[in-house]
Design a protein around this nucleic acid. Structure first.
Ligand SMILES: [Mn+2]
Ligand SMILES: [Mn+2]
Ligand SMILES: [Zn+2]
Ligand SMILES: [Zn+2]
Lengths: 148, 148
DNA sequence: CGCTAGATGACAATGATTTCCACGTCCAGG
DNA sequence: CCTGGACGTGGAAATCATTGTCATCTAGCG
């Protein structure tokens, strides 16, 4: 099965970063489609988009790919109440937080330094170690507010 | 089926707060067991504990009860990575955040005023309305660290 | 005491994710 | 060149929390 032409350099780099990973056309395709998605997508949506792109790939493999990419820290994950996990290519370095529209799914990243510092302090004060955090903001974006 | 003796006053009060709710033995039992649980529990665990208490109640009803209680704001909810939602009776008033041990599940509430203010500010600055947030902290508690 | 909207619970259905497993693909020796 | 085995793939089946269905019950009111 043909999976796609040359990779846009940056994507090829990312493929290489996946740990214990052999480079396969499928993984490259997942990463390529992911790179073209501005917003969070579910594994299933990803699968559909890949199919629409003419890429034949098993849903199982899509799941495995996003799992690997998540472990590798290349994806941000967010959990929707209705569906399961939603994935998005991590824009820059490090970990970020997003404000997501509950209506249309549009997302924008927010500056959460305040929270990062606070979380670190909490770790120190409580006797807990290896403190991690999940922070999700949801709301209704300006565009969806008028449309309602 | 016998559901239990007299309700510990406070629980009876809470039952009354459930919106559009009729007072049934099952709901009272759910709330009573929930009040006796120091940590977060899943709907299924709740069902098991009820059974252990000699309360015969359908799993479906347990789910409906926690849903109603969540809507009524009487429960705090967090989402476990593996299982689904975990519930706990909301200790005092308003919304809180917790630091949960990834090993043993023990939880303690944290003071997140800083984050609350920050979240409000984000809402104002981004043009989003009705901004809500989910914030969960996880770590390894002191007790589990030595035990590992 | 009846009536009825609301509540219950056994069972089936849903749906995302995972597990199985038989089959490809790649590469390091021989 | 072969060949073995480790890794990757993907269809199908399994898992599992949660929700829907629907016949039956009951709390609460007049
Ligand atoms: Mn953060
Ligand atoms: Mn908060
Ligand atoms: Zn929107
Ligand atoms: Zn612990």
């Amino acid at each position: 099965m043909i999976v796609g032409g040359g990779l846009p350099g940056e994507v090829a780099d990312a493929v290489r970063d996946v740990p214990s990973g052999r480079s396969t056309p499928q993984r490259a395709a997942v990463l390529r489609v992911l790179a073209a998605c501005p917003d969070f997508v579910s594994a299933q949506e990803l699968h559909a988009r890949l199919a629409a792109d003419g890429v034949s790939i098993g849903l199982t493999t899509v799941y495995r790919s996003v799992q690997a990419l998540e472990r590798a820290g290349l994806l941000d994950v967010v959990r929707d109440d209705a569906e399961g996990r939603l994935y998005r290519r991590r824009p820059a370095a490090g970990h970020r937080h997003y404000l997501i529209c509950r209506d249309c799914g549009r997302s924008q990243s927010v500056d959460a330094d305040v929270v990062e510092e606070w979380a670190e302090r909490v770790g120190e004060c409580t006797g807990f170690s290896a403190v991690e955090h999940i922070l999700e903001l949801t709301g209704v974006c300006a565009r969806c507010r008028v449309g309602s």
